[in-house]
Write a protein that binds this DNA or RNA. Structure first.
Lengths: 169, 169
DNA sequence: TCATTGGTTTGTGTAGCACCAACGATTTAT
DNA sequence: ATAAATCGTTGGTGCTACACAAACCAATGA
């Protein structure tokens, strides 16, 4: 086995690239977000909240991969600015349902609008189509399962015919 | 103008998604990298160095968007582990040329191999083709121009027919 | 009744930076 | 030749964004 001359080049992981690009984006974005009273982590929270509106704080903590206590502080920031609302869940009155307010949605749109220049600076090696492709892939990946600390997320072995850390090497 | 009914939906920026996904990757990766004596930022540095081998520390600082003093410390770590070498540039003896050692290249490959499970956990919503696409896009974007603090990087207005922060709104 | 869970508060600690200032070695401009 | 600028280095200070732990209240479920 493993004899097909399919270019058995060593695996390239996207993790480091992701990290590096995210850093560039974040640093460039800080200057643009500051006048709006936002910092990068607020933007991330708002963005997550737009897609998963009405999440519990616990669910939010899971998708953000943050400690619940940290999420409390983050939401305090956002709620103080009226970007987000906490409502008691009717089903389980211990829970808080977090909702994006109109003001929050509008500010998010505004922020994304002004982030055009940032994306332009960082992703300038990509044309419009490629940027759209990238966004779609990221959105798909991010929409994935909850990443609890325990389970790997999906039903194991999603798309791993490539190389898995087993023997054979 | 701006009258074509081309789905004038508000712009979606990939910055926040990038940030969030990078975070998930990094947190998952820490546990895998630790036994190899690496931390996420070391992996980023090694990865950058594989593509831009023989860079000056200054160039490295630019692509990593880090302070030169910080880069010194980072390289000290890597050089102490024999993953990287500093050589005086013959042309300008002030400069240091940074090279990946064989040991460094081998450890990087090893790390990437073990990172399969991490990528599998985080990108499990993507199939193999999509993961490859994502990697290519990221690599292309990262291979882009030097992101000095001043200029936007590329020759302005690369692929920005979409929406630019001008009037008209 | 008692154990559990969701959110909150208040610590304490840490990693990963930035920024500043000063220095030696070297190159470049005057 | 002298002065100015550049590259890397060191050491210091300080900040941000977290994690983690402990204790608490309210509410749910056993």
């Amino acid at each position: 086995m493993a004899s097909l001359p399919v270019l058995n080049q060593p695996p390239r992981r996207s993790g480091a690239l992701l990290d590096n690009l995210a850093r560039r984006m974040r640093l460039h974005a800080e200057g643009v977000l500051a006048p709006l009273g936002l910092r990068p982590r607020h933007l991330v929270a708002l963005t997550v909240l737009r897609d998963r509106d009405g999440s519990t704080q616990q669910a939010l903590a899971t998708t953000l991969m943050m400690d619940r206590a940290t999420v409390v502080g983050l939401l305090n920031d956002l709620e103080a600015d009226g970007l987000v609302e906490r409502q008691r869940s009717p089903e389980d009155r211990r829970r808080h349902i977090v909702r994006l307010t109109d003001h929050g949605a509008r500010l998010l749109a505004k922020a994304e609008f002004s982030l055009a220049e940032v994306e332009d600076a960082v992703l300038c090696a990509l044309d419009t189509d490629q940027r759209a492709q990238l966004y779609d892939l990221l959105a798909l990946a991010a929409s994935g399962p909850e990443h609890g600390p325990d389970h790997g997320g999906c039903g194991a072995a999603a798309a791993a015919q490539d190389d898995a850390p087993d023997a054979s090497c």
